[in-house]
Amino acid sequence: MFTGALASGDPALAPLIRPARSHRDLLYFHKSAGGAAYRDYVDHDQRLATPLKDITEQPATAQAARRVLERIFKPAFVQRVVDGAFSSVASDVDAARGVYNLYAIAPSLSAEMPDHRALPMERYIALRDAAWFGYLSDAEDFYEKGPGFADSDITYRMSDVLLDDFFRQAEAKRAGTSALGAELRFTHAEEIIPLAALMGLPGSTVWRRRPTGRTPTPTTRGAGHPSPPSSRGAVPCRGAASSTTWTSWSAASAARAEPVGGSFYTGVTDRPTAYRRAVADEVIKGLPGPTHRRPERSSPDG
């Protein structure tokens, strides 16, 4: 779809575009063999489960869930959901989260709507409740996909494979062994957010104010609970988590065959965002090998 549109916009590019290929270990690493330890962490680690449970079970969550459901159903029916009367619905919070998840992806669905109109999700969820469920989603992303706990890299260690490939591509361009003008990778939030955390990219460890107006106390890349570092999943990974997101590493070849500038990462619908200077510098210098050097990560408030 993307390459078709690219060639349609500039037909001269058509013969230069290689066929798309899948690479599970590189672009779906959280489900590949390299992500086994990560999957065990998500499924069984009590240190992860406890803060997420504490965050979700705050009174504000049940209050927001009831408000969301009562915009759609009669109060008596909502109470039945709360009481667990339906085996197909785990809880009222899960039902309300389903509404929020649709709200989160609604902008991406406008092309599928009559006259390309956006879904009128404001009818079903108020902004304050969307903000609260967004906060819960961000907390989950932070602990499950992002920086996580200060003494562990389990959530982003596996993204090394993608970072290594970035350096291989840039170094091949610098060495003159690659004729590629660009390598475009399409993947998901489960890959983009860990990569952003590994590289310390802008927004991946930024402290954000919670919907309650309270601000968590900053620590280095992790915090106690129930007030997690409120990094926003939408900052390092634009669009809904279920939407395709792409990352591009651009290294243009100058007359001296040296890479120059132009490194960025972006979501499908967002503006390009510059890498940290240390990351771009490593590409420009042309390091001797992809696995020997890494950009230093910054603290969330640095």
Rank of each mutant, 00 (worst) to 15 (best):
Ser91Phe: 11
Ala111Asn: 12
Arg117His: 13
Pro114Leu: 15
Ile105Tyr: 01
Asp92Phe: 00
Phe77Ser: 08
Ser108Thr: 11
Pro75Ile: 11
His116Phe: 15
Arg97Asn: 01
Asp83Phe: 02
Arg80Cys: 05
Ala95Leu: 08
Ser108Leu: 15
Ala106Gln: 00
Val82Lys: 04
Lys74Cys: 02
Arg80Asp: 01
Phe86Leu: 05
Leu102Gln: 07
Arg80Ser: 11
Ser91Ala: 06
Ser87Phe: 14
Ser108Arg: 13
His116Lys: 14
Arg117Gln: 14
Ala76Pro: 06
Asn101Lys: 06
Pro114Val: 13
Arg97Glu: 08
Ala111Glu: 15
Ala111Pro: 11
Ala85His: 15
Ser87Pro: 04
Asn101His: 06
Ala96Glu: 07
Val78Tyr: 07
Val99Pro: 02
Leu102Thr: 09
Ser91Gln: 08
Asp115Arg: 14
Glu112Asp: 13
Pro114Phe: 11
Val89Trp: 07
Ala96Asp: 02
Ser91Met: 08
Arg97Lys: 03
Ser91Val: 05
Ala85Val: 12
Ile105Asn: 01
Ser87Asp: 13
Val99Cys: 01
Ala104Val: 06
Ala90Gln: 14
Ser110Ala: 15
Ala106Met: 01
Leu102Ala: 11
Ala104Asp: 15
Met113Thr: 06
Val81Pro: 04
Arg117Gly: 13
Val99Met: 02
Arg117Pro: 03
Ser110Glu: 11
Ala90Ile: 15
Phe77Gly: 05
Val93Gly: 03
Ser88Ile: 14
Ile105Phe: 04
Ser88Leu: 11
Val89Cys: 12
Asn101Glu: 14
Ser87Val: 13
Gly84Gln: 07
Ala111Cys: 09
Ala104Gln: 08
Ser110Tyr: 13
Ser88Thr: 09
Ala85Glu: 09
Ser110Ile: 08
Val93Met: 03
Ala90Trp: 13
Phe86Tyr: 10
Val82Pro: 01
His116Val: 15
Val99Tyr: 02
Val82Asp: 02
Asp83Lys: 14
Leu109Asn: 08
Pro75Asn: 10
Arg80Gln: 09
Asp83Thr: 04
Glu112Cys: 12
Ser110Gln: 12
Arg97His: 00
Leu102Asp: 12
Gln79Phe: 05
Val78His: 04
Val78Glu: 03
Val82Ala: 02
Gly84Pro: 12
Tyr100Leu: 00
Phe86Pro: 10
Tyr103Gln: 04
Gly98Asn: 12
Ala106Lys: 00
His116Glu: 08
Phe86Cys: 07
Arg97Asp: 02
Asp115Pro: 10
Val89Glu: 08
Gly84Asn: 07
Ala96Cys: 08
Asp92Cys: 00
Pro107Gln: 05
Ser87Lys: 11
